[in-house]
Simulated scan of single mutants.
Amino acid sequence: MHREQRIEGPDKLLNTSTKKAAIYDHILNKLMTGQYRFGEKILVKGLSEETGVSRQPIMSALSNLQERGFVQITAQVGCTVYNPSIQEVSDFYRVFGSNEGLIAALAAERCLDEEKQRLEEINEKIEQINPRSRGVELSYMKLNEEFHNHLHLMARSPLISRQQMANFQLSDFFIVQSCGFQAHIDDATEEHGSIIEAINSGEPDAAQQSANRHIENIARQVLEAMASGRVGG
């Protein structure tokens, strides 16, 4: 969901007062843009030379990324980008979809009329994206993030939303590493529209089912790409 501003380049990293946060963001940006791929080794020495940051903040950042499921650190071996099994990703999306379904149901129960209109406006912007334009995936990713952020606001359940935000970032990572965002652009507005319709009608069960189906379809594309060995880009 929400992403902190990326900080790239050694000069900016060195001028940042919080080196640990900066190097964390720097590595995460590489993961989220496909510069690091599933199973690829991440060299601490290389990162240190690239950024001008010492080993300790880099290892701290990698440890935090491991806790969130992005990398795997093995003693005496090093750090690699986490390479999940298809079963692990499938399990993740079952939990992810269930949580997003609950959030959509809560939004149907608790949202204000003006918030419904805003959700429709965001989805209309997604529909207007030119699939042949430059930077189409980034445009979609930002608007999709805005859509789900607003949906979470409408649910008025900050604790659940905070937990789901971490899931969204991991989902984006899986999408980048597999099918890419463009694979789902054509379906997104229709699926979002089903969620909106259920919320506008005040039907929590229908909203929950629509949101769950939306995540299930994303999961299907990710898993099919992983099974076939395709990669996003």
Results as ranks from 00 to 15, higher is better:
residue 1 M to A: 15
residue 54 S to M: 09
residue 121 E to A: 10
residue 75 A to N: 00
residue 137 E to R: 14
residue 94 R to K: 12
residue 92 F to G: 03
residue 167 N to E: 13
residue 162 R to Y: 08
residue 41 K to H: 10
residue 89 V to F: 12
residue 226 M to W: 13
residue 208 Q to S: 15
residue 159 L to Q: 15
residue 163 Q to H: 12
residue 155 A to N: 11
residue 70 F to Q: 03
residue 91 D to H: 03
residue 46 G to C: 07
residue 68 R to S: 12
residue 132 R to D: 14
residue 61 A to V: 06
residue 82 Y to T: 10
residue 106 L to Y: 10
residue 205 D to I: 05
residue 217 N to D: 06
residue 64 N to L: 13
residue 87 Q to A: 14
residue 158 P to F: 11
residue 60 S to F: 10
residue 82 Y to H: 11
residue 200 N to K: 15
residue 137 E to Q: 15
residue 115 E to S: 08
residue 114 E to C: 03
residue 182 Q to L: 11
residue 178 S to A: 14
residue 41 K to W: 04
residue 85 S to A: 13
residue 195 I to C: 07
residue 169 Q to G: 10
residue 169 Q to V: 14
residue 18 T to N: 15
residue 122 I to T: 01
residue 78 G to T: 07
residue 173 F to K: 05
residue 192 H to Q: 03
residue 1 M to G: 11
residue 49 E to R: 14
residue 33 T to I: 05
residue 46 G to L: 13
residue 104 A to C: 05
residue 58 I to C: 09
residue 135 G to A: 14
residue 227 A to V: 07
residue 77 V to S: 02
residue 202 G to W: 01
residue 202 G to A: 13
residue 116 K to F: 00
residue 183 A to T: 10
residue 219 A to D: 06
residue 74 T to K: 10
residue 226 M to F: 12
residue 76 Q to P: 00
residue 51 T to I: 02
residue 120 E to N: 13
residue 39 G to P: 04
residue 72 Q to C: 07
residue 156 R to M: 09
residue 41 K to N: 04
residue 165 M to R: 07
residue 70 F to W: 08
residue 232 G to T: 07
residue 28 L to N: 00
residue 99 N to Q: 15
residue 137 E to F: 06
residue 190 E to T: 14
residue 66 Q to L: 02
residue 182 Q to W: 02
residue 181 F to E: 00
residue 159 L to H: 11
residue 174 F to D: 04
residue 32 M to D: 09
residue 53 V to P: 06
residue 141 M to A: 13
residue 119 L to H: 11
residue 160 I to V: 13
residue 125 K to P: 05
residue 188 A to T: 14
residue 111 C to Y: 02
residue 205 D to K: 09
residue 188 A to E: 08
residue 182 Q to V: 07
residue 106 L to H: 03
residue 127 E to Y: 05
residue 107 A to Q: 09
residue 50 E to P: 06
residue 212 N to T: 02
residue 152 H to P: 01
residue 117 Q to P: 03
residue 197 E to P: 09
residue 180 G to W: 01
residue 151 L to G: 00
residue 71 V to F: 12
residue 10 P to F: 01
residue 200 N to S: 14
residue 92 F to K: 08
residue 146 E to C: 11
residue 151 L to N: 04
